[in-house]
C-alpha cells in the first residue's frame, strides 16, 4: 500500500508541478524584459485546450509519429519515479538507479528524434540531427557527474545519494559538490532545450532544435510532447535541488505532517531554482550550434575535476 501511495504521489507531483516550472521561468523572463508576460498557469490552460483539439496528422507519417508522444510522456513518468521528491514516503527504494534514469530518458529522446524524421519535413530532420549531436556530447558529463555522486554515497541509487547528503557526514560546500552542481546546471540547460543551447521561444530555422522536432505535432499529441518535456525538465531540477539542497533533515515532524511539510519545502525549492534558471537564461545569449561542444567540454571538465578532487587528490 505504501508503495502504491509512493508511486501515485511521485507521479501526481511531477505531472501537476512541472507546467508550473515552465510558467515561472516564462514569467521571470518577461519581468526582466519589462513585459507583463503570460500568466504563470498559462501552460495548464494550453494543455487542456490542446487535449480538446482535433489532431492534424501528416499523411506522410507512420505509426511512429503517433506512438512517440506516448513513449516520450511515459519514459518521463518512469524516470520521475527514480528521483524521490521527499525521503519521507519511500518504502524501500524504487527499483532503478541513476544509470537507469539516464537510459530511460534516452529512450524518450530516441522516439522524439525518430518522430522528427517521420513526416519527411525539412525541419524535423534538422532538429533530430542537431539533437543527436548535442545529447551525445552531453552524455559523458551526465554520466561522470552522477557516477561521482554515486561513488561518494557508495550507491547508484538517487535515494541513497539524497540520504548521504542529508546525513550531515559530508560538507555541502565541499568543492566536489560545487563542481558537480555546476556541471549538472549546464546539463540541465542543454537537456531542457534552454538558452544557450537551444531557444524554446523561437521557431527560427537557424536556431531551433527541440521545437523543430515537434513542429508537425498538434492536438493531444502536442500536449503530451509538451508535458513530457516539462516533466523531464522537472526531473533534472529535482535531481539538483534534492541532492545539493537537502531539506528533509530539518523537519522534525513525522507521519503525514512531515510529508506535507517536506513537499511544501520541495515546491519552494523548485520554484526558487526555476527563477535562478530563468535569470541564467536571460543573462546569456544563444551559442552557435558548433560552440555547443565547448559548453559540453566545460561541463565535462567540471564533473571530471569533481571526480579528481574527491577520489584522486583525497578529500
Amino acid at each position: 500500500m505504501a508503495e502504491l501511495f509512493y508511486v501515485l504521489l511521485q507521479i501526481g507531483i511531477f505531472v501537476l508541478i512541472s507546467p508550473l516550472v515552465s510558467g515561472v521561468i516564462k514569467k521571470v523572463k518577461a519581468m526582466t524584459q519589462k513585459r507583463k508576460g503570460a500568466p504563470v498557469l498559462q501552460l495548464y490552460f494550453d494543455l487542456t485546450k490542446l487535449l480538446k483539439k482535433q489532431a492534424v496528422i501528416s499523411d506522410k507519417a507512420s505509426w511512429i509519429f503517433k506512438a512517440s508522444p506516448y513513449v516520450v510522456f511515459s519514459t518521463a513518468i518512469a524516470a520521475s519515479l527514480l528521483i524521490p521528491v521527499t525521503t519521507f514516503v519511500v518504502p524501500g527504494r524504487f527499483s532503478g538507479d541513476i544509470i537507469m534514469l539516464v537510459y530511460l530518458l534516452a529512450l524518450g529522446r530516441f522516439f522524439m528524434t525518430l518522430s522528427g524524421l517521420d513526416t519527411g519535413s525539412t525541419f524535423g530532420g534538422m532538429g533530430s540531427s542537431r539533437e543527436v549531436m548535442i545529447s551525445s556530447l552531453m552524455e559523458p558529463s551526465i554520466l561522470v557527474s552522477v557516477f561521482t555522486m554515486g561513488l561518494i554515497a557508495k550507491s547508484t541509487s538517487v535515494y541513497d545519494i539524497m540520504e548521504m547528503m542529508q546525513s550531515g557526514n559530508v560538507s555541502l560546500t565541499h568543492p566536489v559538490f560545487i563542481m558537480i552542481f555546476l556541471a549538472l546546471l549546464i546539463i540541465t540547460l542543454a537537456e531542457t532545450s534552454r538558452i544557450p543551447v537551444d531557444d524554446p521561444a523561437t521557431h527560427l530555422e537557424l536556431t531551433m532544435v527541440h521545437e523543430a522536432m515537434i513542429l508537425e505535432y498538434s492536438g493531444r499529441h502536442l500536449a503530451l510532447m509538451e508535458l513530457g518535456a516539462s516533466i523531464k525538465q522537472l526531473v533534472f531540477i529535482t535531481l539538483i535541488v534534492n541532492i545539493f539542497l537537502p531539506h528533509d533533515q530539518l523537519i522534525t515532524y513525522t507521519g503525514a505532517m512531515g510529508i506535507i511539510l517536506s513537499i511544501a519545502i520541495y515546491i519552494l525549492k523548485v520554484v526558487g531554482f526555476s527563477v535562478l534558471m530563468a535569470l541564467a537564461e536571460v543573462s546569456t545569449v544563444k551559442f552557435r550550434l558548433f560552440s555547443v561542444p565547448n559548453l559540453a567540454a566545460l561541463s565535462f571538465m567540471l564533473s571530471f575535476l569533481g571526480f579528481l578532487q574527491y577520489f584522486v587528490f583525497g578529500r
Binding site: 482535433q54 489532431a55 492534424v56 496528422i57 499523411d59 506522410k60 513526416t119 519535413s121
Partner: peptide
C-alpha cells in the same frame, strides 16, 4: 479522438 490527415508543412 479525432484526427485530420494533411500534408507536411512544405515551406
Amino acid at each position: 479522438y479525432a484526427e485530420k490527415k494533411y500534408g507536411t508543412w512544405d515551406c
